[in-house]
Write a protein that binds this DNA or RNA. Structure first.
Length: 587
RNA sequence: CGGGGCGUAGCGUAGUGGCUAGCGCGCCUGCUUUGGGAGCAGGAGACCGCGAGUUCGAGUCUCGCCGCCCCGACCA
């Protein structure tokens, strides 16, 4: 039994000054967590109870699915990560350290290497597969900017599973088993979530889906189609394919003097205001202009090459999407100095006529899928103060590739069914990947197949943010008064308040609390004497135990007040029926 | 790494170069109070982020450093 009189807890009346998001404010105010360093948190008794409940649910669901739990250290040697290049690829995000002999170690950001090597050490036959193993361990990532309390921390707990199969079909099955296990896990945790298709990103591999908890404070943006149900992270979304256009009646391209048109808006305005530039059938719009954005690509070996991205002028480039498409190449801003090195690129007036790997400049040119063959554009003439009109894609210029580079907008057409997409934000609470053979290859994990041939194993990797789930539930489940825990993860089933100054309510509440404990109900008992009722009520609402019982003046009428924290509904329960009512409620 | 903001008691904060650094919450003692963050009285608690400098005098001004928060970059 948790007794408020002795519980290691101090609730705060005011929000901490450095907190921004609800989960951060409420978990700190409620005395669930305290900050130790940026992105590094301590759990106080109530917080640790919630954390352990979530961990328990995750573990039970993994075990139910038939996965086996192992446990790796958080402190790991460098070598395996060297072999998969992640010692370098992770960059500054990796916590590195040395032992007394100056040997390199790291604090594991995730454990693909270790799992792969463990299986390699034990298994060597296809008969041993498939295999799914997992562990729950503290992970370390030296995030450039931890934020939002424990939502994005540098030390956090993750459940990560790995599947090992001989065939692609086997991998698909293991993947689906995890998908189902995740659905039941998050359902039990009371989380609302969407399953969206995602990019594999730095993990490598092919198919990948994210479990996103819809939430304004989430860092991931995803789209959803209300009609067909398609859902995808913006990084993974595919633009609706547009048909090629017939451009036989478009006049030949012509260069025009368009001074003082550094922006798309000014270009559109001048194009509509000058009669010789005007379009016959309608006004020019920003989407008629072809904006060419130049960025610097940085390859893994540090080589820098420019990349020009062509897209309609009313769209912005979404660098996240470009990087997702280009991975592992990274992007940097194209600086003033870079323009000097590439005279073909005229700042503000870049046009595709001089671009492309096969062109004189040799600069790679990619276009947004909206730039279809036959489409007609106004774009830069590669000469300061000049634009070219009626430049037709495929007739007057070409490109090296089509790339998903433009920002995704609310109302864009679904690539699947054409309906308007809606856009939302979410917190990544789980991610499932088909890794394929990347790690098995790098670490040489092979088994003999039924023909006695050595084959490389194919793997999947599946993560759940356990500590993040605490904050995510808090984000999704609170009101202006405080937290509202789903019973499965709550630090207690019932919060019993003894009210008044007489012994009777305290003695009665004490008796109830003990009887309930015997019945297996988890009780938080506010047995503090001399604390005013208002404080107790406010604390109970802040702490967010799903059921609150007040043992006080109702005793005169032989009743206990029971309140549902979430709905606020109150019912008066006869004293004699109290214990059985609570037991029924919590069962 | 770029932009912005902020560092004063456990928490939230006030503080024109000038008395002993103020207030609220919380904490301690006593009395009162007891159904929505109680009242009165008394108390403890501060290296004013660190270091230089300017000045008769610095929480306050200057410079440097450190740290934190937010936005961006970055990020399974």
């Amino acid at each position: 039994m948790l007794r408020m009189s002795t519980l290691f807890l101090r609730t705060l009346r005011e929000d901490p000054a450095d907190a921004e998001v609800p989960s951060h404010k409420l978990l700190v105010r409620g005395g669930y967590v305290r900050r130790i360093a940026p992105g590094i948190w301590s759990w106080l008794p109530l917080g640790y109870l919630v954390y352990r409940n979530i961990e328990r649910v995750v573990r039970e669901e993994m075990d139910n699915a038939g996965f086996q739990e192992v446990h790796f250290p958080a402190l790991l040697p460098r070598e395996p990560y060297e072999k998969t290049h992640r010692w370098e690829d992770y960059g500054d995000n990796l916590f590195r350290l040395q032992d007394r002999k100056k040997a390199d170690y790291l604090l594991g950001p995730t454990h693909e290497e270790m799992f792969t090597l463990m299986v390699k050490g034990e298994y060597s036959s296809y008969k041993d597969l498939p295999l799914c193993i997992y562990h729950i361990q503290i992970k370390y990532r030296d995030e450039a900017r931890p934020r939002a309390g424990i939502l994005r921390a540098r030390e956090f707990v993750m459940k990560d599973s790995y599947s090992f199969d001989v065939t692609d079909e086997g991998l698909e099955k293991s993947y689906q088993r995890h998908r189902e296990a995740y659905i039941s896990t998050f359902d039990r945790l009371g989380l609302k979530y969407e399953i969206v298709s995602a990019m594999a990103g730095a993990m490598g591999g092919s198919k990948s889906e994210e479990f996103l908890a819809p939430c304004e404070t989430g860092e991931d943006t995803y789209v959803k189609c209300p009609a067909c149900g398609m859902a995808a992270n913006v990084e993974a979304i595919v633009t609706q394919k547009l048909p090629e256009l017939d451009a036989h009646d478009v006049p030949a391209a012509h260069v025009e003097n368009t001074p003082d048109t550094p922006t798309i808006a000014s270009l559109v305005e001048i194009s509509n205001s000058r009669s010789e530039l005007r379009r016959a059938d309608r006004d020019w719009q920003a989407s008629d202009t072809l904006k060419n954005v130049v960025v610097m690509q940085v390859a893994v070996d540090g080589t820098r090459t420019p990349l020009v991205i062509g897209l309609p002028g009313d769209r912005e480039v979404d660098l996240k999407r470009v990087e997702a498409a280009l991975h592992p190449i990274e992007l940097e801003a194209f600086e003033e100095e870079d323009f000097k090195k590439y005279p073909a690129l005229v700042k503000g007036y870049i046009g595709p006529q001089v671009l492309g790997e096969k062109s004189v400049s040799g600069i790679r040119y990619v276009v947004d899928p909206r730039v279809v063959r036959g489409s007609r554009w106004i774009t830069g003439a590669n000469k300061p103060g000049h634009h070219v009109y009626d430049l037709v894609a495929g007739r007057d210029f070409d490109w090296d590739a089509v790339m998903e580079a433009a920002e995704v907008r609310q109302g864009d057409a679904c690539s699947n069914c054409g309906e308007e997409l809606s856009i939302a934000r979410g917190i990544e609470i789980g991610h499932i990947f088909q890794l394929g053979r990347k790690y098995a290859e790098a670490l040489d994990l092979k088994v003999l197949d039924e023909n006695g041939e050595l084959v490389t194993v194919t793997m999947g990797s599946y993560g759940i943010g356990v500590s993040r789930a605490v904050a995510t539930i808090a984000e999704q489940s609170h009101d202006e008064k405080g937290l509202i825990w789903p019973r499965e993860v709550a630090p207690a089933d019932i919060h019993i308040i003894a009210a008044g100054k007489d012994d009777l309510p305290f003695d009665t509440a004490e008796k109830f609390a003990q009887e309930l404990e015997v019945q297996g109900v988890r009780v938080l008992f506010d047995d503090r004497r001399g604390v005013s009722i208002g404080v107790k009520f406010n604390d109970s609402e802040l702490l967010g135990i799903p059921t609150i019982a007040v043992v006080g003046k109702g005793l005169n009428d032989g009743v206990i007040e029971m309140r549902d924290r979430k709905s606020g509904e109150q019912q008066l329960v006869p004293v004699d029926a109290f214990v059985s009512t609570v037991v029924d409620l919590c069962r």
